[in-house]
Structure formats: structure tokens, C-alpha cells
């Protein structure tokens, strides 16, 4: 198998890697916000559940969560394992990353000076208006570097989907490496991930720059 064939074959898997990446971000970013808000709830039960959620998902390996989400329903309830592995994979990634995002949001929200809330309250903004108009835009600006970190990690973590037999780029690379007794697919995989992350860093750098029109 020549190099071009290897690259093309792995590029097929790249589509699935991208699917994990974008769908995970699509679901985990808002889900993380929901968890962060629940964690800040005044109701002890609600905040306790959110706290436990974050603690469990951050305290156990993503690989374990992937296996639990994919095969757990079968072992526990006899529910068929999904044929489209993208579904359990994205669920596992999204709930895992939501926990990390929730903590980032929380730290961002807690770093906001109380004066911003008070100024908004005196001006008569509702709680919802205060959150979306005053607090959230500033929180996003503050947490963007941490978010970038997580996104870069996510690119690399997508390779973990191979543990539940999802045929993403790295799994295909391993298959080729086996059948060819060759190390080249791993180098190709490394280059793919590196370029992917270079693009992510570039885009996030642009976003950060666009948001730094004011000083904190």
C-alpha cells in the first residue's frame, strides 16, 4: 500500500473524527452551561446532583465512559447495542466534556465582580437579561483560553472512540498499520491531528483576538 493510499484511506476516517469533534462541541457547550447553572442553584438537591455529575464524569476515565455508554445499556437492561456507533460515542463525549465545560463556566461566572450584578439590578435588568447581556459576554471573554485548551484536547481524545469499535481515523490507521506491519499510518495520524489542532488554534486565536477589544 503506497503512502497516498494510506492517506486517502485514513482521510475517510477523518470524516468520522470530525463528526465526533463537531457534534461533541455542539452538544457539550450548551449542556455544560446548563450543568453550571444547575450547580449554582439555590436548591440543595439540584446543585447536589449537578455536583455529583461533574465529580463522576471528571473522576472516571473517558474510555470507561465510552464503554459504559456503548455497552452498558446492553449489559444492564438487554437493550441492543447501537449499530450507528456515532450515537453512543457522541453521547459519551458530550456528557464528559459538558462536565469540564461546566467547571470552566462556573469559574468564569464566579470571577465576575459583584458590582456588575448590582449595577444591572439597580438599572432594572431582569435576572435573565443580566445573565445574557451583562455576565455571559464577559464570562466568555474570560474563559476563552480554557475553552481552547479543552477543544485542543478533544481533537486528540477523538482517537479514543476506537475502544468501542468506531471506525474513525485512528482506528483505520491501526488497521493499516497491522495489515502492512508498518509505522507509517501512525505518522500520518500524528500529522492529521497536528494539522487539525493547528487549524483549531488558529481559529480560536482569531476569536480571542476579536473579543479582546476591551480590557478586563
Amino acid at each position: 500500500m503506497d503512502l497516498l493510499t494510506i492517506i486517502l484511506k485514513m482521510a475517510e476516517g477523518l470524516e468520522k473524527t470530525c463528526a465526533i469533534f463537531f457534534l461533541t462541541l455542539l452538544f457539550s457547550i450548551p449542556l455544560g452551561m446548563v450543568v453550571a447553572l444547575l450547580r449554582g442553584s439555590k436548591l440543595k438537591i439540584v446543585s447536589g446532583i449537578a455536583r455529583a455529575y461533574i465529580s463522576v464524569l471528571r473522576g472516571t476515565p473517558l474510555m470507561l465512559q465510552l464503554i459504559a455508554v456503548t455497552y452498558g445499556p446492553y449489559y444492564l437492561f438487554g437493550i441492543s447495542v447501537s449499530r450507528n456507533k456515532l450515537i453512543p460515542v457522541v453521547i459519551a463525549f458530550a456528557i464528559n466534556y459538558a462536565a469540564y465545560f461546566a467547571e470552566i463556566y462556573r469559574s468564569g461566572i464566579e470571577s465576575m465582580p459583584v458590582g456588575q450584578y448590582e449595577a444591572a439590578e439597580v438599572l432594572g435588568y431582569t435576572k435573565v437579561q443580566t445573565f445574557f447581556k451583562i455576565i455571559l459576554p464577559q464570562v466568555i471573554r474570560r474563559i476563552l483560553p480554557s475553552i481552547t485548551n479543552e477543544i485542543v484536547t478533544l481533537v486528540k481524545d477523538t482517537s479514543m472512540a476506537f475502544t468501542v469499535s468506531y471506525q474513525e481515523m485512528f482506528t483505520i490507521g491501526k488497521q493499516i498499520a497491522n495489515s502492512q506491519t508498518s509505522f507509517v499510518p501512525f505518522i500520518v495520524a500524528g500529522v492529521f491531528y497536528y494539522v487539525f489542532n493547528a487549524i483549531v488554534s488558529f481559529v480560536m486565536g482569531r476569536v480571542e483576538k476579536a473579543m479582546s477589544y476591551y480590557k478586563i
Partner: peptide
């Protein structure tokens, strides 16, 4: 209306 000691303008 209230004017704060620390202004509390919205920086963004």
C-alpha cells in the same frame, strides 16, 4: 438611580 463608588460600568 445609583452611582457606585467603583463606577461598575459594563466593560464590554
Amino acid at each position: 438611580g445609583l452611582v457606585f463608588q467603583n463606577f461598575n460600568l459594563f466593560p464590554h
